[in-house]
Write a protein that binds this DNA or RNA. Structure first.
Lengths: 221, 221
DNA sequence: ATTCAGACTGAACACGCGTTTAGTATGGTG
DNA sequence: CACCATACTAAACGCGTGTTCAGTCTGAAT
């Protein structure tokens, strides 16, 4: 499906029709409009995802995604399509994201219940973050492939990602709780005093996005 | 700039010209073409980023991004634009990503050197992963905002993300090393025996992470 | 044998796009 | 003054788009 590779707007109905060996008019006749075709594609892809999921022992789309990663070459086209759905704010993409989030949350709850995973001060937010982190390599697959030198489709790429990923999820990044403690104090303090929670994570935090607040000893401007 | 909100192709030259109160022909006259306009926009945004960076005491774009998060409302439009750059495979986007990656890697190396961060079995890959994770909330800002109920560019959203993020980066997710050990054994075993490197991260891994691109085949209507 | 629904098509339509063209003001320079 | 580069525009051009139209062909039901 060209939608995944080139995006929806960059793909013309005539192009799709030519791929299928039919006329553009027939495509419109069957699907009503280009948007109708897109809706049908969305539905078809999600259906395929659910079918794969039904075959899995454990429940969940997240598990299906894990299987993809063992057989990357199978699913490349689908993944392009899902990446498109997730980032273009379409209704189908929103529902897909919500499902992924829900299933990730369930997985984490189960992990906490059986003791294999830590408790969180904010389990919902943690599930959300981990869902985002899981999708990041998919959305940035081209950048990732470029940086690694091997296409993300390759088994080599997945092999290489596995250990550092699990190391992060097992040991974390920091060697101590200084930054966490400082952030927690700042957040609690801000709540208690009503002060504006100005975050100032200091130089130690590698995360460019969410923001760790005030560190005790700070050299910032 | 409308490019960030609606994307490059969805924004017409006439629309831009109307925003600026001039004719479309003048825009083309000044920038040569629509692509020229885009290049100028890219350059201007990156220049602005570098200017902000120059004002910061610590070096680095990552630091600049952290400052954004303290004043989210300032930079909303820029963030949309950068997200677009990073995901559309443009040359400027590639260079931006490479810079972010490089600076993240430097930050991690410094952290390891001063003992505040753990060593990694694969520091480059870890830097890459953490860069991806940092960008995920930006790329999926709409999904994130939807799930949280408040837009990403709000102090409330950033406050809520801070603690779970630092908890993850401080303690990790798993309570023990079982999954890491199993994966490590599988990876090493595969290397030793020459077996197909089937990644077996175990059912407990919540990370849906990487994906592959594949050939363009078409499932016709 | 006739009818009829549906698959299917080539040609056309209306429209929006990026871009070109031909031209008009404006204002500094010799 | 004349000259000329520059800022700027309205109108048009050519093209590609999604979609419609008027039919043709096929095959099963009546």
């Amino acid at each position: 499906m060209r939608f995944g590779k080139q995006g929806f707007e960059r793909t013309s109905v005539r192009e799709i029709a030519a791929d299928a060996g039919v006329s553009a008019a027939l495509v419109i006749h069957h699907y009503g409009s280009k948007d109708g075709l897109r809706a049908a594609c969305d539905a078809s892809l999600v259906e395929q995802l659910m079918a794969d999921r039904a075959k899995a022992d454990e429940p969940g789309m997240a598990q299906t995604m894990r299987e993809w990663l063992d057989h990357p070459e199978h699913f490349g086209a689908s993944i392009d399509y899902f990446a498109m759905m997730l980032s273009d704010g379409t209704e189908g993409g929103n529902r897909l994201f919500d499902r992924l989030l829900h299933e990730t949350a369930a997985l984490l709850d189960a992990g906490v219940a059986d003791g294999s995973m830590r408790e969180s001060s904010d389990p919902e937010m943690r599930a959300l973050l981990i869902t985002l982190y899981g999708l990041a390599p998919i959305l940035l697959r081209d950048q990732l492939g470029r940086a690694m030198g091997t296409p993300l489709a390759s088994a080599a790429a997945i092999r290489r990602m596995t250990r550092p990923t699990l190391e992060l999820y097992t040991h974390g990044l920091y060697t101590d709780t200084r930054i966490l403690d400082a952030a927690a104090a700042a957040l609690d303090g801000a709540v208690a005093t009503g002060t504006t929670p100005r975050s100032d994570k200091g130089p130690g935090n590698p995360n460019q996005d969410p923001d760790p607040p005030a560190q005790a000893n700070d050299t910032s401007p």
